[in-house]
Simulated scan of single mutants.
Amino acid sequence: MTFTSLRLPTPTLHGRIREELRERILSGAWQPHDRVPSESALMAQYGVSRITVRQALGDLESARMIFKVPGKGAFVAEAKPFQELGRLQGFAEAMGERGHETFNRVLRCETVAADDTVADRLRLAPGTPVTHIRRVRYLGREPVSVDHTWLPAELGERVVREDLATRDIFLILENEGATPLGHADLALGATVADAEIATQLGVSVGSPVLHIERLTSDREGRPIDFEHLYCRSDSFQYRLRLQRR
């Protein structure tokens, strides 16, 4: 029996350069706003043409890892702000720990009849009154997500009396609602921005957005907060660490 060896594809020159530069950024060897070596320096270092270097730098710029200043060169960009999904935290709570300023634009706050999906998630009968809150979450001056939240009416009535422009619903539930949180179940997927979400997030219609469905329960396991989150992926990240058991 004979065996045929498999030959792995050889990385392109610009791909190899891109990955080496990328590793220096991710490892922290280059800090935000550090100047990237000039095109001429990279040409000399790698023995390649200017077009090859420009391809590598162009890939990093498209990934928002570097930015260019006309007449001055390329510089390392600030890392995207991120929230750890492994911790049950509100958006403002998580971003505040990292020194980021946040605020919310409240679009809707009303009592509605629970449809079949909301009723099922919150373990209510269809048609039961629930509180629906819709917000655009801002990080600095940039919108990063559109959040739909449904709460049982008795909790929702307490929540809407508070300052939803600056406070997380999670903290309001725990402090004013005296409802300690227990756990949350999440489902993540990709979708595209319709006209309404595109306008609220400042992206083009049809742009890819991250969709998160989250159901949060109290310490007794009672579901109390059902959400749909539509998040920009170009200026914000969610991260999750997984452990092998």
Results as ranks from 00 to 15, higher is better:
A165G: 15
R137P: 00
L155Y: 08
A178E: 13
F91R: 01
L88A: 09
W150L: 07
V53C: 06
F75D: 03
L173T: 07
E154H: 06
T131W: 08
E154T: 02
P152K: 05
P70A: 11
L57H: 13
L60T: 08
Y46R: 05
D115S: 00
V48L: 12
A165T: 14
L60Q: 09
P143Y: 01
L42A: 00
S38A: 09
W150A: 03
P129K: 00
R54P: 11
R134C: 03
A56D: 14
I172K: 05
G71H: 11
Q55F: 14
A44E: 15
L124A: 01
P126H: 00
Y46S: 04
S145E: 11
T166K: 11
R108H: 04
R108P: 06
R64H: 15
G99V: 08
G177H: 02
H100F: 12
P143N: 00
G47A: 07
W150S: 04
A165I: 03
S49M: 06
L107E: 09
A119R: 02
S40F: 11
F82L: 12
S62G: 13
V160W: 06
V130E: 00
Q55A: 15
A74D: 07
D147S: 11
P81Y: 12
P126E: 00
H100Q: 05
I172N: 04
L171G: 06
V130Y: 01
I169F: 09
R158V: 08
G90K: 11
D168L: 06
E78R: 10
Y138L: 06
F82N: 08
A113T: 04
D116K: 10
R50G: 10
F91D: 01
L164S: 02
P70S: 12
S40I: 10
T131C: 03
R161V: 14
E101Q: 08
E174M: 05
R167E: 12
V53W: 10
A56C: 12
A79P: 15
R158Y: 13
R105C: 10
I51P: 01
G96A: 05
A125L: 09
G127E: 09
V76T: 02
D120N: 13
L122D: 08
